[in-house]
Design a protein around this nucleic acid. Structure first.
Lengths: 179, 179
DNA sequence: AAGTCAAAGGTCAAAGAAAGTCAAACCAAA
DNA sequence: TTTGGTTTGACTTTCTTTGACCTTTGACTT
């Protein structure tokens, strides 16, 4: 069964379509789905995270709105960020998966590759006793994988695509807010 | 004589039929058979193991579910050996690489996938202090990856579109992990 | 310009809904 | 009587939903 949050996510994704941003009224959306307005925040906080390649902007007061922006920065940027990030900060499994999925979206990885990577960084695969250790290990493995991916990325990119501007407005933090 | 666990197994197998995967609610199933919910876990843990050709996925919380995924029924010999082998025996990096290369020749993995896997199991990626620990960890990761490779969709299916977050309403893919 | 106010949206914690874990109790067969 | 597979239930973890209360904003007065 899929939850109302899933439906809202789907609705937003559909509304987004091929565009790279959309703007809505929180209250309207909430009443359209008959949920508490704060549930909209929940959906945004859990599904439209930077790790997944989105950011949120909003304004309060009369004429307020929320907008969802699809991050369109260069995939190799994302890879570089993973590589640059200190291992000690670690990644939860879910955050790591969000990132991997996001990279599938950006066509850095195929869906099959993503499955393999996710398997490799699953709790199951990571024997280590404590969660903290797992998170670090995951960061380290992901880093190695990202480096490997960067290599082929460089090969592919060697002659392409100047026409893409649009950097992340926030310096592109890669974290996931899910609880 | 047949225990209730056997009946639950049979029920699941029937429900699975010819499909590659099924998705159920643990609580519903438990109450259908009037058993403790955790008995469902017992059945899954003892009867739907990778060794027997299945893996389990699940999600907790509201809208939670358990899904049973059938692994390919004509697995690569090499792949099944990896899954069967005890982790404690470990793999050196070189051995592991040979195996992965072998799997490339067998067309289980693409060359690109192989690169990523090798990166994931490189000494660099594996933080752990002692070599022995690294070797075990490598075995565990490789096992998880092999297991993922045994999922059908990973073997032959790629015809459909993976490009956007999985639209399959209600019948298809369960592989989640997102949140 | 400053003050007021209603209309947004934001935060947070509690309650609810699943599933997971683990060890103790149970039972059948050797 | 020991052993190994089953069954159960108490407790934990994860994800979702709701509601009460907080902050920001712009328009409207004064």
């Amino acid at each position: 069964m899929s939850t109302i949050s899933d439906l809202i996510e789907e609705f937003l994704l559909n509304t987004l379509g091929d565009d790279d941003s959309l703007s809505i009224s929180r209250n309207e959306l909430a009443s359209y789905f008959s949920v508490a307005p704060s549930q909209i925040n929940y959906v945004l906080a859990t599904r439209f995270t930077p790790a997944r390649g989105y950011t949120i902007e909003s304004r309060r007061g009369g004429g307020g709105f929320i907008s969802v922006v699809r991050l369109t920065d260069n995939p190799s940027e994302v890879l570089s960020q993973i590589v640059a990030r200190p291992i000690s900060q670690g990644y939860s499994y879910n955050t790591a998966c969000s990132i991997v999925d996001r990279l599938v979206r950006d066509e850095v990885f195929t869906a099959q590759e993503a499955e393999l990577i996710k398997a490799a960084i699953s709790d199951k695969a990571l024997l280590t006793p404590t969660m903290m250790q797992k998170d670090s290990l995951r960061a380290s493995i992901l880093k190695a994988v990202a480096s490997a991916a960067l290599k082929r990325c460089n090969c592919k990119n060697s002659q392409s695509d100047p026409a893409q501007g649009a950097k992340a407005p926030d310096g592109g933090k890669i974290t996931d807010n899910r609880r």
